[in-house]
């Protein structure tokens, strides 16, 4: 795997699509390619966010540590990014991410990433679009979940 291939991968990710090639290459150069064995954690819920990850190969599980125990909320595959929310919001990691199988990622540190966001408004717009879509999806999920809760409660109410 070389810089050129990583650059091609980055280009296919929507939020990086609009960055000019030389800058994207610089981002790839400044990033680290890291392999994780199955079960190893990329990100620990509650830790401060210092990097975003682009999955090159393999799968990662997003795990929420809840009072009732860990819950897998999503599985991500190649060309998907994880962890950029923490960097943007400067908030602690809201979930744990671990390798599901042998996982290869590109680790993009906070500094170069934020620099790109600041320098390329288009990148910020792409991120906003991506976030809006995620929010929309989350809203759908939430309303579905609320409806489900209501239905269950009603059932329980009838039963009671």
């Amino acid at each position: 795997m070389s810089l050129k291939e990583e650059f091609e991968l980055l280009r296919r990710v929507p939020i990086f699509a609009e960055i000019e090639p030389s800058k994207l290459k610089l981002l790839a150069f400044m990033s680290e390619r890291i392999g994780f064995d199955p079960g190893k954690r990329l990100v620990q819920q509650g830790d401060s966010a210092d990097a975003a990850y682009l999955i090159i190969d393999g799968h990662a599980e997003v795990v929420l540590e809840t009072a009732a125990g860990p819950v897998v909320v999503a599985t991500l595959g190649a060309n998907e990014t994880v962890g950029e929310m923490g960097i943007l919001g400067d908030v602690p990691r809201n979930a744990t991410v671990r390798a599901k199988d042998r996982l290869i990622v590109l680790r993009i540190s906070k500094d170069p990433f934020m620099r790109m966001v600041r320098e390329f408004p288009n990148m910020a717009v792409s991120i906003m679009r991506e976030l809006a879509q995620r929010l929309d999806a989350t809203n759908h999920q939430l309303s579905a979940a609320l409806a489900e809760v209501k239905r269950l409660r009603d059932q329980a109410g009838i039963a009671a």
């Binding site: 680290e32 390619r33 890291i34 392999g35 994780f36 990329l42």
Partner: peptide
């Protein structure tokens, strides 16, 4: 002690 280089790109 190492007599080698720590490998790049391995998370561990």
């Amino acid at each position: 002690i190492l007599f080698g280089k720590i490998a790049y790109g391995e998370a561990d």
